[in-house]
Design a protein around this nucleic acid. Structure first.
Lengths: 191, 191
DNA sequence: TGAATTCTGGACCAATCGGTTCACAATCGC
DNA sequence: GCGATTGTGAACCGATTGGTCCAGAATTCA
């Protein structure tokens, strides 16, 4: 009946995700997307409805992958180590290009607040969920709920700061000492 | 010879600054600017060259006003109180609309990195200058230079985080406890 | 008042934007 | 093979983008 194999959908989405992550929503033109995804206009609209829908999909995907990242770390380490690893891992080892892309949720909140509030608030919602995850890890580590809430709020602030900072392409790894200091504070508060 | 009084230039720039601050560079169209500034197209180009130049000017102005803000606080309080006030003042008292606009330098870094690197790196440069100001205030408060450097880096992370967070229009004032916790840490580190 | 100068509203421009349409090519069941 | 079905490239669309241009209004000097 039909043509079974078209283009590799998940690969195309990945390419789009990278573009949106790096350049944001507005600066990524349809032409950019088509070139990166290696497909034509009509295939694009047939498969993804429109640019905004695809962005939404990529944003969801990004959030999902971030939580997977934490879950995987948690499976291999203590709650606090997993948490600290989540902050430090982004900046150690082989410096990848991604290190300078920040966080797509943070980027979207900044770029789209006041421009497309639906997209911005969805990104903000995902950040709130991430903060909840921070909190539950802190509670697993023995913090009282209220204390875990406050510390999670602090960690989210640090997280947002790190993602902004990483977009600045500063030389060296200037975020590591503040991260270490923050976790010293957290560990001493919990113990 | 000429027509002496035209439109109020500084007022027009202020209006443009607010627009760029709220909506960012790309989402602010020329039509938006002209409407807000209350001037015509030709006057705009005669006075400000083009949109990008005006944005640059507004960014410079924003950075200058932020440093003035700190200087004024410093004139009336101790180094540490001035510093803490800079972080807390943005969110207490009458909640103004500005509270949700974040920081134009942070916004520009996020929006324009990878899109217009010259603009982005200028914004980043101003953030670096602000961090230096943090550091000198910490040194004034008695911190050793190396320690002041690390604490200033932490404060810049918190600062960036706060500005991101403020764009999310979260209910309440969820940033105050983390700020307080951070300054407890700083004060105990210095004392 | 009249000439000189300057500022400005609005018409105009090419380029680009995201999105639609359609004829054709490619693959399927048979 | 052949008809049916479906994915796709390319032409096309109106809207909007940032930017230019110029005729005329406004103001100053003489």
């Amino acid at each position: 009946m039909a043509r079974p194999i078209q283009f590799d959908r998940s690969k195309a989405v990945d390419r789009a995700l990278v573009l949106f992550w790096r350049k944001g929503y507005q600066a990524t033109s349809l032409a950019d997307l088509l070139a990166a995804m290696g497909i034509g206009r009509s295939s694009f609209y047939a498969a993804f409805t429109d640019k905004r829908s695809l962005f939404l999909h990529c944003l969801d995907l990004f959030a999902q992958r971030v939580t997977e990242l934490i879950d995987r770390a948690r499976a291999e380490a203590s709650p606090l180590d997993a948490l600290q690893g989540f902050f430090e891992r982004s900046f150690v080892g082989t410096p990848s290009a991604r290190d300078h892309w920040g966080c797509m949720m943070v980027n979207s909140v900044i770029e789209l607040a006041g421009v497309d509030d639906d997209l911005a608030s969805r990104a903000s919602h995902y950040l709130a969920a991430l903060q909840k995850r921070f909190q539950s890890l802190l509670e697993e580590a023995g913090a009282a709920p209220s204390e875990a809430g406050e510390l999670a709020a602090l960690l989210m602030l640090i997280n947002e700061g790190i993602r902004v900072s990483s977009r600045r392409k500063l030389p060296g790894a200037p975020h590591l000492p503040p991260i270490a200091a923050t976790f010293r504070l957290i560990r001493s508060a919990i113990a």
